[in-house]
């Protein structure tokens, strides 16, 4: 498995014991990344959402039941299943920081990458995006609006990375050595519970560096070797067990 390594590796550590499933991250993400609202969002598998909060259950009956919520952004795999399959290089993992890019004007909308991604992190613009009249005035200038027919996904608010670098340049700092907190995603910023921590997984000065090494940390579907850059933490064994497929006789770490 060839895993792309970078000097800087942006990543997340999401504490599932702190997430209460309020959805602030999802709304913040939509507003930040210019996703269009939709009148009927019932069909969850046809609704655009770069970040989805899944509900996890320990599958025990009342009163032994326990619940957990799992925010799922793009996992920014080190060995992305989606990148190599794209016929037109519309998605790539090549930039310092290790964010999997998605270039809308290049995408032809074949959806092969969606078939490849087991995290369902990729979404297709089934129709043209429509904002209620006037609401387009609240679009940010940071992210281009996507037409129908292209695939999109969470970019770790890549535009904030660009801005952080520009700010560093303007202030005479090294744009390659951003401090912890100089660049955070919109979801991590919004979370009132501080469940999402964002930073450089390779930099010991960043909190995620240490969190990703916690005994409670593991990644989604690790055994598929996608080598993701999003870590999930939970002190609950049953939660950790649901982060990957385990046969009955297999133990889970932590």
């Amino acid at each position: 498995m060839e895993i792309k390594e970078f000097k800087v590796k942006w990543g997340m550590a999401i504490d599932l014991d702190k997430c209460t499933g309020c959805g602030a991250c999802m709304v913040a993400c939509q507003a930040e990344n210019n996703l269009a609202p939709i009148a009927d969002a019932s069909n969850k598998i046809k609704v655009m959402n770069w970040l989805v909060v899944y509900e996890l259950s320990n599958k025990k009956p009342f009163p032994e039941h326990d619940v957990a919520y799992l925010p799922r952004p793009c996992q920014q795999c080190g060995h992305p299943p989606c990148v190599s399959v794209c016929p037109v290089v519309a998605t790539d993992k090549n930039e310092e920081g290790g964010i999997v890019s998605q270039i809308y004007p290049r995408c032809i909308g074949c959806r092969y990458c969606m078939a490849a991604c087991p995290y369902h992190a990729r979404y297709f613009n089934w129709l043209d995006p429509v904002w209620p009249e006037g609401m387009e005035k609240a679009l940010t200038p940071d992210v281009s609006v996507r037409p129908r027919g292209v695939v999109e996904k969470c970019s770790f608010c890549h535009h904030r990375f660009m801005k952080a670098k520009d700010k560093a340049i303007a202030e005479g700092r090294d744009p390659e050595a951003l401090a912890d907190g100089d660049y955070v995603t919109s979801c991590a910023e919004a979370c009132p519970n501080g469940a999402i921590v964002f930073g450089d997984l390779n930099n010991p000065d960043h909190q995620v560096y240490h969190l990703s090494r916690s005994k409670y940390a593991s990644r989604l579907l690790e055994r598929l070797h996608a080598n993701t850059q999003v870590y999930y933490l939970s002190r609950r064994e049953w939660v950790r067990r649901q982060l990957d497929n385990y046969l009955d006789n297999e133990k889970v770490k932590g």
Binding site: C22, G23, A24, M26, V27, A28, Q30, A31, P37, M135, A138, A190, C191, P192, N193, G194
Partner: peptide, 11 residues
């Protein structure tokens, strides 16, 4: 922190 309600207030 911000609430899931206020976060889209601009919209």
């Amino acid at each position: 922190g911000i609430s899931s309600l206020a976060v889209a207030e601009a919209q």
